[in-house]
Amino acid sequence: MSQNVLAITEQAGDHFRKVTYEILSEGKRLAAALGGSLTALVLGSGITELAAGAGEYGADRILAADDDTLAEYTTEAYAGVCAGVIDSESPAIVITGASTQGKDLMARLSARLNAALATDCVALALEDGQLMASRYMYGGKILADVRLSGSPQLVTIRPNAMAVEKTAGEGKLETVAVDAGEPRIRFIEKKMETGKVDITEADIVVSGGRGMGGPDFSVVEALAAELEAAVGASRSAVDEGWRPFSDQVGQTGKVVSPSLYVACGISGAIQHLAGMSSSKVIVAVNKDAEAPIFAKADYGIVGDLFEVVPRITEEVKKLKNS
């Protein structure tokens, strides 16, 4: 077993996802603490040029698995390449983002490699060379420190939870031979909502709840546009059919930890809080001064969201122009 860290990167089109910079930075810190090096593994098709960029965030070596069969993420093809690399590199730690890809991949790999996995971690530390990971359980109600043993140790980290540091590594680029075999799963198509930032990745999220009163989210969307934020929703708004399931924040929706979360017309039920209480700053706009959301919000405005939110949008616009 080496003292090295392997970071499995992830891209969206021609750029790395933000969480990739987070895992490279965290991977670099762990590698330094272990006295080892950081290797980035970049998988995809036509990604060799992109891969070189991982050096800027600390990768000492970059392995590019560039092959048509990896153009789209599929569990088996990716797990096969990753397992091969892990086998030859024997990293002590394998780190990736807690994205839909990262969680899927690592779950499968944990069984293939009989390796410890901690997913959606918000902090990592080393104790006697073993990983200690902090992660939420019970819908965000508990923060647990878990100790991983064995080798390798697999972790996925929650987007927006860890600091990005630009620390150049040597960035030596190597290619990985890809033999995808005969994957049983076939990619058919991808339907993306263009230009939409996913709420789990956004730095700011503006959400609407039942208080929106209907499917017209234009006041929330306008504020989101001004803040370059993503639009989220409470389950009630989703259940009403006002917003797609993919926008739902909460225990049975997505967990977000943006730097700013703005809850508009959301009461603050425990299941909603489960999805957003690790946001850095929370703002609530609600006409009911007794709404539980105010007990969790850093800043609250009691008032009708249809009056307040457009004013906030105005003020943000002014700030940007000042």
Binding site: L117, D145, R147, S149, S278, A295, A297, D298, Y299, G300
Partner: peptide
């Protein structure tokens, strides 16, 4: 392979202003 060492309550968010 994964053992819980400690559990704590997340930092309590107290309502701000």
């Amino acid at each position: 392979l994964v053992r819980i060492q400690a559990m704590r309550l997340p930092p309590e968010r107290t309502g701000g202003r």
